[in-house]
Design a binder for these strands. Structure first.
Lengths: 195, 195
DNA sequence: ATACAATCTTATCAGTGTCAAGATATCGCA
DNA sequence: TGCGATATCTTGACACTGATAAGATTGTAT
């Protein structure tokens, strides 16, 4: 039975992990700094030593979840041997992440989240960048005009992102793993003629 | 200079319209019942005569915005003469609504919103129903297997919903009207062979 | 006209984000 | 080693929020 030390030691990390666990249970809109602080056994103002404000805290959690998502995607890309299938496999992985973690979708991709993200670090959103780059690669080798490569890249990106959005909704049970693959393949880009 | 009457007269309507205007300016997360009440020139507890709680109020605003969205979609469907183009025209209309009203996307389609919607009235989400029905109609006349009609319906639905999601994000300026049409047509379903 | 229901106000509660002031621990440097 | 600067944490406060209770005002039906 050790006494609680004045300094927590790893409070920043603990706050982030407990906050994410909370969001995964109850959703972002129920989250409060004070409850997370209490869960970490620390007073209400303690988080302000590590985060400027609540948005800063949310941004830190986002980075954490985004990294887990990106990790899952890059593993998928690296493990895929078949070049021609890499795009649909990446798509399936993208969708299934949110099928299994439905509460993460709004958290990562709500307008507010994207805004915080872009203002704190105005690079691109990593999974968007990866998907577009991959699609451009695959489509570039198909002898299509550059303009159509752009259109089809955006189309595949939107298709996958949209499937993820629908998968993350409650009571919309059209989508499970084998179906996702079939749906994505049903618009396989190699079939599309020039317009 | 008339004196303020004790009874507002059309408070419920005023609350809903002012609330929506507020969301369209500042986003849902900044909205508070008290501010909307004040804007209507009424005390903080007055809204509770018309709405059970905040979620009930949000649900009412959702219905209002959803109707505006559905209105735009049904006009599009009715005005479209060319049967073969009806799906892509509906898609363009779907996307452009959120391109022009980016703050409405999360408001209508966040997990929380869908949850409130489904719990208060467990029918389908109207624009989803309309899009799926239209897609099924168009695709049904193409001599494809029933299974593939299902897949391609979901694919077109997800594509359009995903484009809307991306269009509603800040600083993601890939999508304007002429491009949206080209993107959707770039995966026109008539080109897809059986798998 | 009188009883009843709907609408609105005032007052209050617990919970929230945020900040200031001060307590406590850690770290760098003499 | 010791001492001062700095990081971390607590307590206490402030304004704001959603929500409820009690009571005032108005509309309505009989």
């Amino acid at each position: 039975m050790e006494k609680k030390p004045y300094h927590h030691g790893e409070l920043k990390k603990a706050l982030i992990e407990n906050g994410i666990e909370f969001i995964n249970q109850y959703g972002e809109e129920k989250l409060s700094l004070r409850k997370v602080a209490e869960k970490c056994g620390v007073s209400n103002a303690a988080p302000y030593a590590h985060f400027k404000d609540k948005d800063d805290f949310i941004n830190a959690m986002q980075k954490y979840v985004m990294e887990a998502f990106m990790n899952s995607l890059t593993i998928c890309v690296n493990e895929c041997k078949d070049e021609t299938q890499i795009l649909s496999e990446l798509g399936v992985c993208y969708v299934m992440f949110f099928y299994h973690n439905p509460l993460y979708f709004d958290f990562l991709f709500s307008r507010k989240s994207i805004q915080i993200r872009l203002s704190s670090d105005n690079s691109d959103i990593p999974p968007f960048e990866l998907f577009r780059r991959t699609a451009k690669n695959v489509l570039g080798k198909m002898g299509i005009s550059e303009e159509n490569v752009r259109y089809k890249t955006t189309a595949m990106w939107a298709l996958v992102h949209g499937l993820a959005a629908l998968s993350a909704m409650p009571n919309i049970d059209i989508v499970w793993e084998s179906e996702v693959r079939a749906i994505i393949n049903s618009v396989d880009i190699s079939d599309i003629k020039e317009s």
